[in-house]
């Protein structure tokens, strides 16, 4: 079994993910347009066939061009990546719409022990064999940004805080979901402890597996947002983010960072590993 040793300072992102696509191919780089090569080829084939169509099908050509071509190849016709620019602008609009829809009093449904999904699925961009292994004694949680007390936290310190449990549904961006039982410290209380400026807009996370993500302050303060130390009554296993993950039943899996090394409060959106590649930033349920 190969295990990746933890690094104290997460460097540039090599890989790592919380709820990554295991079925889908790797996401495109920033330069790759959203339409894949097969999609483009298909469209070109389609359009050339249409151009050879007999004149009596003229009207059909118009309809298909309207419904298909100009839309699908918007980027080519318009030059540049206009379709992609447009879609990303809409995605930012969707961030705002979700921020408005978010009601801090709406709780995610909770379940009974019997409903817990066993085994709870492991999901990341790397195999379970490559999971990050963190020595408890080496581990420290760095806290920074718009907070008053910057002293790092040990696991013992976190375990000494009041603990809570929740049995909630984890929903993955891929569509599947699973019910799990998590325990730990209510995140709003932790933020209070470190004297976080809760009028700031974002909380950002950096992880030992080089993952990074960020959330809005309203979700950070939601009563079910949990700085998670246990899974199903046990010390959080390494598959699920040992030693600490952030569990939010109000957000999709990729927004729930595992193997947290550092968190910070900020007014500048820190983005995220998947979010920077096109997943919606808010990613809320």
């Amino acid at each position: 079994m190969t295990t990746r040793k933890f690094r104290q300072t997460p460097g540039s992102v090599v890989r790592g993910d919380q709820a990554a696509a295991s079925v889908e191919p790797a996401p495109p780089t920033a330069q790759t347009p959203i339409l894949s090569t097969p999609d483009r080829a298909l469209l070109l084939k389609d359009s050339s066939r249409l151009l050879q169509a007999p004149a009596r099908r003229q009207w059909l050509r118009g309809a298909v061009t309207l419904g298909g071509l100009s839309l699908l190849t918007g980027c080519e016709i318009g030059g540049g990546n206009q379709a992609e620019q447009f879609l990303k602008a809409v995605s930012r609009l969707n961030d705002r719409a979700q921020g408005l829809l978010f009601d801090p009093n709406h709780l995610a449904p909770t379940y009974t022990e019997a409903e817990v999904t066993r085994p709870f699925p492991f999901n990341a961009f790397y195999d379970v064999e490559e999971v990050t292994e963190v020595e408890e004694s080496d581990w420290q949680l760095s806290v920074s940004g718009l907070i008053q007390d910057r002293s790092p936290w040990t696991l013992a310190g976190l375990r000494a805080l009041p603990q809570e449990e929740q049995i909630t549904r984890h929903i993955c961006v891929e569509g599947w979901s699973a019910i799990g039982r998590w325990g730990g410290v209510r995140f709003s209380q932790f933020l209070q402890r470190i004297g976080a400026d809760t009028t700031a807009r974002f909380v950002g996370f950096r992880c030992f597996d080089d993952y990074y993500t960020s959330i809005d302050m309203a979700t950070a303060l939601h009563p079910q947002t949990l700085l998670t130390l246990t899974y199903d009554g046990q010390v959080l296993p390494k598959e699920y983010g040992h030693p600490v993950k952030l569990r939010m039943p109000t957000k999709l899996g990729y927004k729930n960072p595992k193997y947290i090394a550092e968190l910070f409060v900020s007014n500048v959106n820190p983005g995220g590993y998947w979010e920077d590649q096109g997943y919606n930033w808010f990613g809320g349920s």
Binding site: E24, P27, T32, I34, L35, D39, K88, E174, G175, W176
Partner: peptide
């Protein structure tokens, strides 16, 4: 296709988006 719940896979050629993130956008 990212997480099918039926024994059915839709040919990628007739889908839009290029990858899961693009399709979601």
């Amino acid at each position: 296709n990212a997480s099918p719940f039926l024994p059915l896979h839709i040919p990628a050629d007739v889908t839009l988006g290029g990858w899961l993130g693009g399709a979601l956008l």
